[in-house]
Design a protein around this nucleic acid. Structure first.
Lengths: 242, 242
DNA sequence: CGCGGGGTTGACGCACATCAAAGAGAGTGG
DNA sequence: CCACTCTCTTTGATGTGCGTCAACCCCGCG
């Protein structure tokens, strides 16, 4: 499989076959013209500018999105009013499905760079045709995965030192890039250190210090925002050796 | 609505009307005999002993459960081998849906006290009848809610001081008890301080100290494991006041 | 009765937040 | 094209919240 080099990241679109919504797209293509299926619910390739907001906290739910290229951050208004980063979305991943429950989006999603998304309009998934059932099943799986994923990452992060958090974070990104057909040892951190800090519960200064330390220890290469994981073994040991 | 006193907590079953799986139960009752619906998928009122495990990490997925009475903790094996608490389940709440995706349970669930559960066997939700569609929709909503809930709580907990974490934790429990028709100012913390600490990322000694501090400040009454929230206002201010 | 798990309380040290100041780009306007 | 600003990053100095260790108490259970 062709790997996109990190220098193309954000331009090179994820292959459909590597997109998490692909099974849904295929279902929809296949079921085109089915009487139970409303028309025009799948919109491909909408471009999104850097800093643009896909939806805001408490906007009415309309669609689920897939990231085709670029990256996003998910924010919720913290209890003290400040916005807080609760997740990042990479190419091939899904955005917005948590809003389906309450018909309101529970978070804000903002582009970290110029990006592309696919939009799946499913305000009301109320038909009863077979394609819809399969679509729903797929959705259930995706949501279940999301929960399990969040739990793991949170548990990993909560008790750990700053170094362990950063290591876990980087390895997590690596794994996700790899899963979608991108290079898994070299990528660009499009988010600011402050965003990472907010996500991991660290000060941005700490993020900077730890990354520098990793670089000096030659665990990773770091030029501006380009990272190269040099010693995945050691990073893994860092985490395990709690 | 009748409120169960905290002294009965763990014995008094949650009213079905307050159970999160009730919509599903009703659907299943209603659809009884439907040709698309397998028989015997709903098992009511299984008792569970204190310390008993409902399912283990990586067990094959079979069922989704509702807590009818009592309480549970959700664990995942930490990266260092130690088990880590990632959640608690109260009466009326759902257990195990995250396993649906991968057909494996991603966590272990253990009873904190003698409890009762309802079991919903849905190993394969593959029919296409109308009841199944509604069931699936309901499931999607529940999962979406779970994600939003986890994100909020985690975001609240991550950046906060030990006092803020405990306050957020207690208020969260209060809210959840209230939502299910239980008293929301008095309840019993069936889990150990160590469990709470594991969940919140604190040492058990810190949990003890902070709770004592709250008691001295008359924010709450605390006798053994019985808590009474005396000054919800101040607890809320604690959280908001960054 | 003795044992063991859980809770309380105190002393100590370190990891990380906070404050501060300066550099490095990226975008903007003259 | 250069000066200006603004945001992000880096690095150092300082303080403190909470983890860790240790001793002791309480209570339930065999």
């Amino acid at each position: 499989m062709k790997k996109n080099s990190y220098s193309e990241q954000g331009k090179q679109e994820v292959e459909c076959v590597n997109c998490i919504l692909d099974p849904m797209c295929q279902l929809l293509d296949y079921a085109k013209g089915d009487e139970d299926l409303p028309e025009g619910i799948l919109l491909r390739h909408r471009p999104v500018a850097r800093g643009e907001t896909i939806y805001r906290y408490e906007d009415p739910f309309r669609s689920v999105f897939a990231v085709k290229s670029g990256s996003f951050k998910t924010l919720i208004p913290g209890l003290d009013g400040e916005e807080q980063v609760v997740g990042f979305c990479l190419p091939g991943e899904m955005i917005g499905a948590e809003g389906m429950a309450e018909k309101l989006y529970p978070s804000t999603v903002r582009a970290l760079e110029a990006s592309h998304i696919c939009e799946l309009r499913i305000e009301q998934l109320t038909g009863s045709g077979r394609p819809l059932v399969l679509l729903q099943q797929r959705m259930i799986e995706l949501l279940g995965n999301e929960i399990a994923f969040n739990r793991k990452l949170m548990a990993a992060i909560m008790r750990q030192s700053s170094e362990q958090r950063l290591a876990a974070f980087l390895l997590n990104l690596s794994q996700r890039y790899g899963a979608r057909g991108y290079a898994d040892r070299e990528f660009v951190l499009m988010m600011s250190w402050t965003d990472i800090g907010s996500y991991l519960g660290l000060a941005s200064e700490t993020v900077s210090r730890v990354l520098s330390k990793f670089r000096k220890a030659e665990l990773l290469g770091l030029k501006k925002k380009h990272v190269a994981l040099l010693d995945v073994e050691s990073l893994n040991n860092l985490i395990k050796g709690g």
